[in-house]
Amino acid sequence: MAEHVSTRVNGKRLAEYVGRTVRLVCKVLQFKGDSALVETSDKMQVEVRLSKDARVTDTYVEVVGKVNDATTVTMMACINMGSDLDMELVDFTIETINDPRFLGSIF
């Protein structure tokens, strides 16, 4: 099981997850070649290196990827989340997930 863990994170949590797989909920700002500039739920800008078969069609996406460093993520998979996502609530959810009372026991 452990090899398939991909915790949901926001921008500021990325630094805690370097080298691990995460789920980054974000808004796509612009494409630059084979990468994309995205805004996380806590309004930080992160570079996502797109995978070859990536199908990023919506404004909001959940990127499953490996954290290279605090501001870059290499995409493994991508789930389109539509054009309207309550990022404040998503950020609250992410902070709840990362709360020590629940991280480890539920998430």
């Binding site: 909920v25 959940e62 989340m81 609530l89 709840t96 629940f102 539920i106």
Partner: peptide
């Protein structure tokens, strides 16, 4: 799409 995040919060609520 919010149902995904709702589910996370609901799991926290129920466990809590």
């Amino acid at each position: 799409p919010m149902e995904t995040y709702f589910h996370d919060l609901e799991c926290v609520y129920v466990t809590h």
